[in-house]
Amino acid sequence: MMPTPHPAVNPAITSASRLTGVVDTHFHAFALTGAGAPGSRYVPDYAATLEAWDAAVAPHGVSHGVLVQPSFLGTDNSHLLKLLAERPAQLRGVAVVGAGFAVNELRRMDALGVCGIRLNLVGTDHRIGEELHPLFDQLEALSWHLQIHTDHGRLAEVLRQLPETLTVVVDHFGKPASPTEVSGLVAGQHDRLFVKLSAPYRLAAGCEAKDLAARWLDRVGPMRLVWGSDWPCTAHEDARATSASPLWLAHWLASDTMTEVVLTDNALSLYGF
Rank of each mutant, 00 (worst) to 15 (best):
D218N: 13
Q147V: 05
S229C: 00
Q147A: 09
A205K: 14
H172W: 02
P163F: 12
E157Q: 15
T150H: 11
H149S: 08
A214H: 15
A187R: 11
R154T: 06
H236Q: 02
A209Q: 02
L159D: 03
V220H: 01
H172A: 12
P200M: 07
W231Q: 02
L185E: 01
R160E: 15
A205V: 12
L185M: 12
L146D: 02
H152A: 14
K210F: 14
L212I: 11
D151L: 15
D238T: 09
L159S: 01
G184E: 06
R240C: 01
V168H: 12
S178N: 09
R202Q: 13
A213F: 09
K175L: 15
V158R: 04
A239Y: 00
L203Q: 12
Q147Y: 05
M223G: 09
G221I: 04
R215E: 03
L203G: 12
G153Q: 06
R240F: 00
S143G: 10
W144K: 11
R240E: 02
D238H: 13
S229G: 00
R154P: 03
G221F: 11
R202W: 07
P176G: 11
T234N: 11
E237Q: 09
V186Q: 06
H152Y: 04
K196L: 04
L146P: 02
A213S: 14
A177Y: 02
D191W: 01
H172D: 12
W227E: 03
K196N: 03
L185D: 06
A239D: 12
L155V: 01
V186T: 15
L162G: 04
A213K: 10
Q161M: 13
Q189C: 04
L185H: 05
T180R: 14
L225R: 05
R160V: 08
S143T: 14
K175V: 10
Q161T: 11
H236W: 00
L162I: 11
L159H: 08
E237R: 09
D151T: 11
G153E: 00
E208M: 07
A235T: 14
Y201W: 15
A199I: 03
V158G: 06
F194K: 04
R219Q: 11
D171C: 00
F173W: 04
A187N: 12
L212M: 08
V186L: 07
R154F: 10
Y201H: 13
G153V: 06
L185Q: 07
G184C: 09
T165G: 10
G188M: 12
E208A: 15
V169K: 00
R192F: 08
S178T: 13
L203D: 07
H172Y: 09
W216K: 00
D191N: 13
D218T: 14
V158L: 08
D171Q: 06
L217V: 07
H149W: 06
S178I: 12
H172M: 03
L217I: 05
R160Q: 14
D218H: 13
T167R: 12
C233K: 03
W227Q: 06
P176S: 12
L203A: 08
L203W: 07
G206P: 09
T167Y: 04
I148C: 02
V170R: 02
H152P: 07
G184M: 05
D230A: 10
